[in-house]
Amino acid sequence: MSSLPEIILIMFLLSSIVLVSSSRLVHCIQLVALQGVLLGIMPLIFWDWQSSAPHGELVFLAIVNIAVKGVALPMLLILAMRRAQVRRELEPLVGYALSQLIAMLIIAGCFAGYRHLIGAAATNSALLAIPVAAATMLIGLFVIIARRKAITQVIGFLVFENGIAVFASGLMVHHGAIVELGILLDVFALVFIMGIAVFKISREFQHIDADRLNTLRDRRDPESPATPAGYTGE
């Protein structure tokens, strides 16, 4: 087994562990960008260079992936972060060390159980991609659950999406370019909309705490515009 794909996949996994433990949003966004770049070069590294040069579709996909996930989306997120004027996720629902432990459990579970996910129909480096993809997806979902700020939840969504993409490129789904480009467009649009939503929420309520939206209801007292009536502080 050649080790370069393995190293890339493990770096992917480690970046999600670090992301779970980081409270600075810029740092999280940088890690997501790193994942995007790794994701972009992954199909090129998995390619069997001895037999033939990779076809144009693959190279094109790699470039688009790096451009969108490694550059465009992180920049968009940083823009949204600046506008909403948040730097840190201060009070997560699950603490950072505990988050790391849970991420560890997720990874262990995925490694232990991946053989049930799929039959033995792949090469060895692709085999490692399966638990890594599953773990990344679950960690992304966990970030969405465990964090309060809307922007961190967007980051969690991106991690989740990266996990799906690892699954696709690790298993070398052939001629999946159209599908993957479609997904990429969806994600791009979604993050774009979420970025705008984060900005709007923060302008309206002076915070982007998605948890507090649960208590949102009609204003009863139009004279006090600062806080909605149902909003009780905590």
Binding site: S21, S22, M104, I107
Partner: peptide
């Protein structure tokens, strides 16, 4: 955080 992270790395 760093120490638990390196524990995670070794367990991986």
């Amino acid at each position: 955080h760093l120490l638990v992270g390196s524990l995670a790395a070794v367990l991986t």
